[in-house]
Amino acid sequence: MDLSLETRTHVQRMQKALIQMNLHLHKVISDLTGLTSKARKLVRLKIWRQLLFGWLLSCLA
């Protein structure tokens, strides 16, 4: 049996078992990824604001 096929089969079995236990891991991972992405965007926005504020202050000085 091909290793990638064996791996896929094993992952599918684990996912099925988790779903039967009402643990929807794919939804949890998706939610965490979404939060992480949003958090990264907020951090970038805050950095840009601070850079712009610093630049404006230097222009006024």
Rank of each mutant, 00 (worst) to 15 (best):
M1P: 03
M1G: 06
D2T: 13
D2G: 08
D2I: 06
D2C: 05
L3G: 03
L3C: 04
S4P: 00
S4K: 11
L5Y: 09
L5R: 14
E6R: 10
T7R: 13
R8V: 07
R8P: 02
R8N: 15
T9V: 05
T9G: 02
H10I: 12
V11C: 05
V11T: 13
V11E: 13
V11K: 12
V11P: 00
Q12Y: 09
R13D: 13
R13H: 10
R13F: 01
M14L: 11
M14T: 14
M14P: 01
M14S: 12
M14I: 14
Q15T: 11
K16G: 03
A17P: 00
A17D: 07
A17E: 07
L18S: 07
L18P: 01
I19G: 00
Q20Y: 03
Q20D: 10
Q20F: 02
M21K: 09
M21V: 05
N22W: 00
L23R: 09
L23I: 12
L23H: 08
H24E: 07
L25Q: 08
H26P: 02
K27A: 08
K27Q: 15
K27D: 15
V28F: 13
V28W: 12
I29E: 15
I29F: 13
I29M: 14
S30I: 01
D31S: 12
D31M: 05
D31C: 03
L32C: 12
T33Q: 13
T33M: 11
G34N: 15
G34T: 06
G34R: 12
L35K: 15
L35D: 14
L35A: 12
T36S: 14
T36W: 12
T36P: 01
T36N: 14
S37N: 08
K38Q: 11
A39N: 04
R40Y: 07
K41M: 05
L42M: 09
V43N: 03
R44P: 03
L45C: 07
K46T: 08
K46V: 10
I47P: 00
I47L: 15
I47N: 07
I47W: 03
W48Y: 10
R49N: 07
Q50W: 08
L51R: 06
L51N: 08
L52Y: 08
L52Q: 05
F53D: 07
F53Y: 10
F53I: 01
G54D: 06
W55Q: 03
W55P: 00
L57Y: 04
S58P: 00
S58T: 01
S58M: 04
C59W: 07
C59L: 12
L60C: 03
A61H: 07
A61W: 08
A61S: 03
